[in-house]
Design a protein around this nucleic acid. Sequence first.
DNA 1: CTATTTTTGTGCTCAATAACACGATTTATA
DNA 2: TATAAATCGTGTTATTGAGCACAAAAATAG
Lengths: 246, 246
Amino acid sequence: MLNNTIYKQSYTYMGKKELSEAEIVGCISELWQPLNEEQRNLLSKQFTIQHYKKNEMIYFEGETPSHLMALLSGKVKIFRDGVGGRSQIIRVLKPVEYFAYRAYFGGGNFVTAAAAFEPSTICTIPMDTITQLVNENNELAMFFIKQLSKDLGIADERTVNLTQKHIRGRLAESLIFLKDSYGLEEDEATLSIYLSREDLANLSNMTTSNAIRTLSNFASEKLISIDGRKIKILDEERLKKISKIG
Amino acid sequence: MLNNTIYKQSYTYMGKKELSEAEIVGCISELWQPLNEEQRNLLSKQFTIQHYKKNEMIYFEGETPSHLMALLSGKVKIFRDGVGGRSQIIRVLKPVEYFAYRAYFGGGNFVTAAAAFEPSTICTIPMDTITQLVNENNELAMFFIKQLSKDLGIADERTVNLTQKHIRGRLAESLIFLKDSYGLEEDEATLSIYLSREDLANLSNMTTSNAIRTLSNFASEKLISIDGRKIKILDEERLKKISKIG
DNA sequence: CTATTTTTGTGCTCAATAACACGATTTATA
DNA sequence: TATAAATCGTGTTATTGAGCACAAAAATAG
């Protein structure tokens, strides 16, 4: 609901109107709600809004983190460049999710990079402010502990899935994952995110040609249907089965 | 230094004497130091000591987490069973490192299992006590935030290394990793942990035969020397290079 | 100390998937 | 809208690393 409001706002932004403070605060409620009035005053002076174009880089591997980021609208990928320029998508983000804080808390530079899949709006808050608030506010601290714990659990599972499953299993898993992350369109079948075959390959740890081939195979098996970058999930159960058995 | 004391103690344990409270508290100082007197009183009533034999399971995938664990002596692996019974070692622990709390904070069951590489002593503390303390004590909260952040960064790097590097790169990386984790013996060359070829394979995402073969290759190339499970690092620089280029 | 089980080492085969090439199509841009 | 650039689709080939079998050696249990 609030997402909706913001979405409309980001349209009006195109016509040059910025988000109001109230709207931003509504978006970042997981950070905002735990705070007392004084803390809210501090925070509200600090945040800034940034807009990123499709495929624009948000931060680079190796850079020093300085701000927490909250994705207010759009879609973002977190990825890492590997051997021979092959990149691996580690995580994808939807509104409203927080990122870029892990490296700061971990005391190092970014080990991943971030880029916008689509035009995106991001709220940034200086990490020293966040650290101060975390030190004052236990509920906020617990929010980060929980989020990091979930992400670490996902990372542990993903490591094994990406290394041990076969191509079909990995691609099936990615499709389910995209459905769970970004949902479906009104037809209850089409994935709400349109990725290039290359991004799909980078998400599934395979080459682009293998993503293309396997996708066609899935289509001829009536598991999905493809129309350019639009993917319809036709048989989710069977996809899950393929994903599970690897 | 403190480690040393405990190490001796765990020997005397074999002769049936348990660790004293003071000794335990010295070990878990990262948890203990942030606490005030009242909190320390609470904590000191709660911990118990458990001993595990070589290769004994500490917890299983799918179980519900209830206690934080601190490894006081010994060596532990965190691993996950993958496709076709092949298991993947996700992380290894040395004294004094904390574990088993991620799943609890993440609100789910264990996605990994834990087992002792060697006879190990573990201090357990109920997670509801830990949660209470985290809610009262920001410094303690920050300890967990930092630890989880570091582990997540490592997991992100590892995902790409395990999926994209070739066998030689992965094994070289594991050897460096074991050296960094557990250090060397007095000769400044022999790894302080003796793993089976199977564990080495599970750490490096390969089959046991390939771990054996690649290890022999490394030995004939004078990168390492092998004597049963004892591995001497002869040319760390070249190993690092192999690890880096994949 | 002996018997049994587990681990290690090696050879061989084969499937999975990466790499490459190239034309067709779509998308972005001037 | 024209032109360039990126993406997609498909065929072919090359290579990595898994799978399996089996003997030798080592570790463990009785």
